[in-house]
Amino acid sequence: MGEFLLVTIQVDLYDRLALALENDLINMVSKTEARGVLIDISAVSIVDSFMGRILGNIASMSKIMDAETVVVGMQPAVAITLVELGLTLTGVYTALDVEKGMELLRNKIGYQPKEEEDLYDDFI
């Protein structure tokens, strides 16, 4: 059974970096045959329409490769702003934190945790 990928975005990204993240992550999903992708954006203070589109793209692309994507830890101010902007990130699952995100992924793909969790941690 596949593993989960965990990406923690630790700085605000500009467009080219965001595109690079999309590219790297999708390659990683393909290489590791991961069944789930967790994107932790708790340190991100702004998600605009471009970043929103990247998140949506990652979810759709992963889905084609049979992996589910969960965005975790969105700040309240970011959530309110996204709604006002008109972006609701359809197709992307969300969770309050990494732990709840993992639980959600397990439920979605019927995955039973083994003794040892194998997590890829990508920091940007």
Binding site: V70, V71, V72, G73, M74, P76, V78, A79, I80, L82, V83, E84, T88, L89, T94, A95, L96, D97, K100, G101
Partner: peptide
């Protein structure tokens, strides 16, 4: 609806 959408984005 906006309140519900924002809550969902947070993961609740």
């Amino acid at each position: 609806i906006k309140t519900v959408s924002a809550t969902r984005l947070m993961g609740a």
